[in-house]
Every structure is written in structure tokens, then in C-alpha cells.
Design a protein around this nucleic acid. Structure first.
Lengths: 367, 367
DNA sequence: TACCGTATAGAAAGCGCTTGCTACGGCTGT
DNA sequence: ACAGCCGTAGCAAGCGCTTTCTATACGGTA
């Protein structure tokens, strides 16, 4: 029923070996023969059997891209960029070639699913794996992931991290591209402080994620430097204005709903808040909605800021002050790294800068 | 170097056949034996060789989900939903099982890439394929896709369409879930008409996509029924108010930028426009920005409406009037259909209703 | 003419797994 | 006590391809 290499060979009056060679194009085949084979392939509408080929050659053309939430453009943009560098028919040469099957796997932020996907990709002998986005900080899980990645690397799979901090023992990966979440978070809060804000609420992401922690640390670094945080690290031991960081921080998932709820909670805890920093733009949107529903204006009554600079952020009203992450560029670079089309950065680690984007949603607090 | 089935068998003192059967769990194996095997698997850290397994069994556990734009939540939501029904470890039973590798492939809206991915999935003997979103209407390409899908179906791959109209010769697919784009578009414009709008601009999607055409047709159906369109089909041959449909329609990609540019163009062509309907919410956001940049207020000066009801639409200011598509539900259903967990609708075709969501961005035109 | 290098094609041995069929105890039924 | 079964396990034949090694043919050189 299904056409095999042997069928093609028979029709082209050559041996299966020859057909294989013209298809893979890494062995001299006379032009006339090649043509005959190609015609037979076309005539019979032959499609290579991937599993058989992978088995025999001990490699496959699968490349996995793991994302935490496929419905979130943050990941979509990175994954799409990576895929353009990896995937398909872009090599011009029509006929086969470096054609890889770039696929994205949605972990939904679950460590188990992450591991499952990694195992599944390992099963398939994937050519490369790209992990995007923040990691979960649970040490047990982290160890499991590290071990898995090491095994993948052992088996010849190229592993690259994109928007995720390097592994503790970073040897297993080709490269790690990490965003400067901490620096971005710091600069964002510094901006708010320079506008004169002092009571700043923070709507953080899920507790155990690296992204969450780094952004929050950046925020607190800035607050501390301004002498606004407990712990007496403030300049000259200045009094900390009487409020503690816990009270002005609320954690929740990276979604709109969480931003809404958390902001309401923040406003309840501390009605005097003059600015709210959100864990990311999506959350910020929810925060904006909550602020408005409470009858407050942005930025006159309350400033709101986000993180990531997703495409819709510039269209918010007022446009969202945020921190831009070059998601597309990072994803593309990760894709190239995964394909071996680009040399890894020195030490395998690169930090990607985050740029403060000041827009209309932040302004000085009311006198 | 790598551990094979035979190694496990040796360690468990059974034959490879038995190990295979334990792993696949479709043949009676004594409990004690099973346990011994399982322990050996663990001890050796054995990972099945996917290609070998697929080759021997002539099936694989790959399920492909094709999307037009992975950075667009419209697709992300559907893909994510499908993936939850297909993917991983959700079956509770820890150990193996109906574990499929659900992967999403980003065609970027390019017909060639779509075909390439289909071929790649065919190579891998994918267990199922889900195609999401509108199709390109070029007959050559459509024929090619149909042929490819037929071949996939022949080879035992389950094909389901989600948010895409049925194939002309719909026999090749398990099921087609189509959105009622036309009806949604019609109701949206009827809403605007009922508010009193007469000069309505339309920012359409790319010309050759079914989604674009259906939504636009819905819009024009409504306009025509109101006697506002050329062609004299209007009730009682009423004069068509002197403007033609082409002038008030601008095509462009499904992105924010296109919405912005097209709206400026529309405003230039016809300054008297009182409402703008966008091809989708993302485009609508761009349209809003353009309207504002021209110094006009929404909805007092101009009403704006979108389509899809993506999560951010409710947070726009004012909240966007749009048409809700149950993306998550549709994606999940497609996933179940692909897995054979749900019976196809009668005739293999289901139309999914689109619900009008009236919000703040539309209002009666100024007197 | 004899010899050898080069270019091209074929033979065949697997790659690691699945599965139809066979084999072998121990039980039940008579 | 014997035939016939049921429940398990093993044997061995591939699945369709890649690749090493070998064979052939041709042309040029000595």
C-alpha cells in the first residue's frame, strides 16, 4: 500500500542505496541517475518514512521549543522567531535540505509536563531543544531538569535556554540567553521613584519562578537604595516610611485576572498607594482595569507600569510604561544557536538587556 | 552507550518481547514479572527509542497542530486547549499511557510552510493533525492541501479542522469545526446599523483568507439588507447612499499595525465615517489608536468594533464591542476529536456559534 | 597492452522495536 | 489419569531506511 524506498528504487531501476543517497544528497550520484530517481519519487509520490530513517541514521530532524504558556504572546513571539530560524523551506533549494521540524510544546507552566515533554523529545532523539521563559525554582525539579538536559546533551541533542537563567551546572547546554529581569525591574522602579512615588505596590508573578523573583528583586533593590525598604539597608539608615515590603506585594499567576484581583487587594491594604508595578504587561492590563473600576484615573491618581512591552502595550490607554524585552531577536538567536548557525556567546551565557519604555501610564503622584 | 530494550530485558532476566509488552501494557504480563521489568527500566534509566518503536509499530504518538501565527493569542488559545486534551501526563496514571506528543507548528500564514509541515508530519507518521484558522483560498494550494490531507488520512492520521471551513470534498477529515464568521460579522454590523450608523468603514484581513472573506460577507450582508450597498439588492431598490463598498474597505494583515494604517486611510477616504469594524480585535486595537491619534473620541465621534473577543479586549478603554468566539472550547473539542475521545458531529461538520458582545466602544453616532 | 585511480552503483548488515506464532506449565473437567 | 485450556513468556521475522564495504567500469598513464 504505502510506497517505500524499494518501490522507488525498482521504478528507477537502481538499488535502494542509490535512492537513499540521492535523497540525502551526501554522496556522489551521476546526474542522469539522480534525475531518474527524482522522477520516480515524483511519479510514485513517495514520502520518506521518518521513523525508519531516524532509526537507521540515529538522528532525527525534530527540534522542540518548550514554552510555559502558548496563549501568551510573550512566548508566542519567541517561539515564532525561533521557528523561523529553524523551520522549513527557507533554504531556497526546494529539495530537502536542512529541513527541520520545529515544534512548540506547551508546558502550561507545569514542571511535570516540562519533564514529560523533555522525555518525549528524548524518545524522538530530537536534534535540539529550546527552553523558553522562567524556570520553576523547586530544587528537586530543577535537579530533575538538569539531569534530563544532561542526558539529552549526551545523546547529541543541542540544548539552548532562552529567557531562562543558566543552569547551576551550566555544562549541559549549548547556550543560555538570559533576560536582564533584575536590571529592568530596578530601572522601572527607579523611574517611578524619580517621579516622586514612594508608596509603590507590586503585583508579582507566581512565587516560585525565576522571572518573578528577579523582577521583584530589581524592584526591591531600587526601593532599598531609596531607603524605602525594611532591613535598614536604606541610605543612612533612613526610616523606612513605616511600611513593609510584604504588605505591598501580592503574588499571582501571569494573567489579566490576577492583575485585577491583586490590584484590588493592594488598594484595600494600602489606599495611599500612588503607583503599581505589575509583573508583566498582561497583568498590568488587569491592574489598569481594577484601578479604573475603583474610580481612579491613570496616571493622574495612580501610575501603572508593566514589563515585556508586548505589542498591545503601546495601544493601551494611556500607553503603558514598561520594560522592553527583545523577544523576537532573542528567540531568533536561540533558534540559530540550536541549529548551530551561530556561535555560542563566550562561556555559553549571554545576558540580554532590558530597556525602559516610558509612556503615558506613569506620571508624578498628585501633590 | 545508550540503553536498549535488550539491556533492560537482560537485567530483568526476561525476553525483549516481554519488556516491550510491559511498556506498552497491551498484553498480559504477570505482576511479578512486570515489577521486575519496571525496576530494571528505572535502574538503567531506560528511554524508549521513539523512531524504532514507530517504525516497528507503524504508528507514532506525534500529533501536529498547525497555526497561522503563534504569536497571536487567537491561535495560542486554541492550540493550548487542544494540547491539554491531547498531551501528556494528565491521565493520572503516572506510567505511560495514551501519552501523545502534541506539538504546534507555526505556518506563519504561508501556504508553502503549511504544506511543508504537513509533509514533515506525514514523514513522521503523525497520529493526528489539527489545522486551525482560516485557509488560503488559492485553488491550486487548496487542492494541494486537500490531496495531502487525503493521503494523511489514508495513512491512518486523524485530521481535524478547527476554525477552518470544511474541505470542498470533506471526506478526508475526521471533523471540521467552523466558526460562524459570517453570522458573527452580520450581527456585529446589524448592531452598528441599529445604533444608527450608516457610513461604516471596514478594516479587513488579508484578501485571500476564508476568515477574511466570511467576516466581510457577513458585514456586507447586513449592509445590503439595510439597503446601503451597491448592486441594488437593497430593500425596495433604495438608493445606496452614494458610496461603494470598495471605498470603505481596506485589506491588510491581521495585525495591529495594519489596523492603524488602514484606519488612517479610511479616515482620509471618507472623513464622514462614524464607525469602523475591524477584522479582529488586534486590528481593532490599532484602529483605536489611529482614531485617537486623529483627535477623535471613541465612541462619541467614532465607534470601533472587533472580532474574536480576545482576553485583552475587555480591558481596552473603552472596552471593545466584539464578537466572541469560544476559542478554548473549540480547541479542546478539536483535541478530543483528534484523539478519538469524542464522536464527530453528524456529517463531520459543526458550526460554532459566534456571540455578539456589546461593550463601550460602540454608541450611536453623533447627531 | 597492462595497470591503477576515480567515479559510481550495489549488496548486505544492521538500527531497536513490535508482534504473530509457538511453547510450556499447571489446572480443570470427565 | 489424560486431554484440553488458560495464562505467560520467548522466538524470530520483519518494519524501511542508512551506510560500510565491495564491485564494476571507465579513462589515462607508463
Amino acid at each position: 500500500m504505502t510506497v517505500t524506498l524499494a518501490d522507488v528504487a525498482a521504478r528507477a531501476r537502481v538499488s535502494p542505496a542509490t535512492v537513499s543517497r540521492v535523497l540525502n544528497g551526501n554522496y556522489p550520484v551521476a546526474a542522469s541517475t539522480r534525475e531518474r530517481v527524482l522522477r520516480a519519487v515524483d511519479d510514485l509520490d513517495y514520502v520518506l518514512n521518518g521513523p525508519a530513517s531516524s532509526l537507521a541514521a540515529a538522528t532525527s530532524d525534530l527540534v522542540g521549543i518548550l514554552v510555559n504558556d502558548i496563549a501568551d504572546p510573550f512566548f508566542g513571539i519567541m517561539a515564532g522567531a525561533a521557528q523561523t530560524e529553524i523551520g522549513g523551506p527557507g533554504d531556497g533549494s526546494g529539495r530537502a535540505g536542512g529541513e527541520k521540524l520545529a515544534v512548540v510544546c506547551n508546558t502550561g507552566g507545569s514542571p511535570e509536563r516540562e519533564l514529560t515533554y523533555l522525555t518525549l523529545l528524548q524518545r524522538q532523539r530530537a536534534a535540539a531543544v529550546v527552553l523558553t521563559g522562567g524556570a520553576v525554582e523547586d530544587p528537586v525539579h530543577q535537579a530533575a531538569v538538569s539531569a534530563k538536559l544532561a542526558k539529552l546533551a549526551d545523546a547529541g541533542t543541542r540544548v539552548v535556554l532562552c529567557g531562562r537563567p543558566p543552569l547551576p551546572d551550566g555544562e549541559a547546554v549549548v547556550a543560555a540567553l538570559a533576560f536582564d529581569n533584575r536590571g529592568g525591574g530596578r530601572r522601572l522602579t527607579e523611574h517611578l521613584l524619580s517621579l516622586g512615588h514612594r508608596r509603590i505596590g507590586y503585583v508579582a508573578g507566581p512565587l516560585e519562578r525565576t522571572t518573578t523573583r528577579h523582577r521583584l528583586e530589581g524592584h526591591r533593590d531600587a526601593m532599598r537604595a531609596a531607603g524605602l525598604l525594611g532591613g535598614g539597608t536604606g541610605a543612612a539608615g533612613r526610616p523606612t516610611d513605616g511600611y513593609d515590603e510584604e504588605r505591598l506585594t501580592v503574588h499571582g499567576p501571569y494573567d489579566r485576572r490576577s492583575g485585577y484581583d491583586a490590584t484590588l487587594e493592594l488598594l484595600r491594604r494600602e489606599p495611599e498607594v500612588t503607583a503599581i508595578v505589575a509583573a508583566n504587561d498582561t497583568v498590568a492590563l488587569g491592574a489598569c482595569a481594577a484601578v479604573r473600576d475603583r474610580g481612579l484615573r491613570i496616571p493622574e491618581d495612580i501610575s501603572v507600569a508593566g514589563f515585556d512591552d508586548l505589542p498591545f502595550s503601546v495601544d493601551a490607554v494611556p500607553a503603558l510604561t514598561t520594560v522592553r524585552l527583545p523577544l523576537f531577536e532573542a528567540g531568533a538567536r536561540a533558534g540559530r544557536l540550536a541549529m548551530g548557525k551561530e556561535n555560542p556567546p563566550p562561556g555559553g551565557i549571554a545576558t540580554i538587556a532590558a530597556e525602559l519604555m516610558v509612556r503615558g501610564s506613569t506620571a508624578p503622584p498628585r501633590a
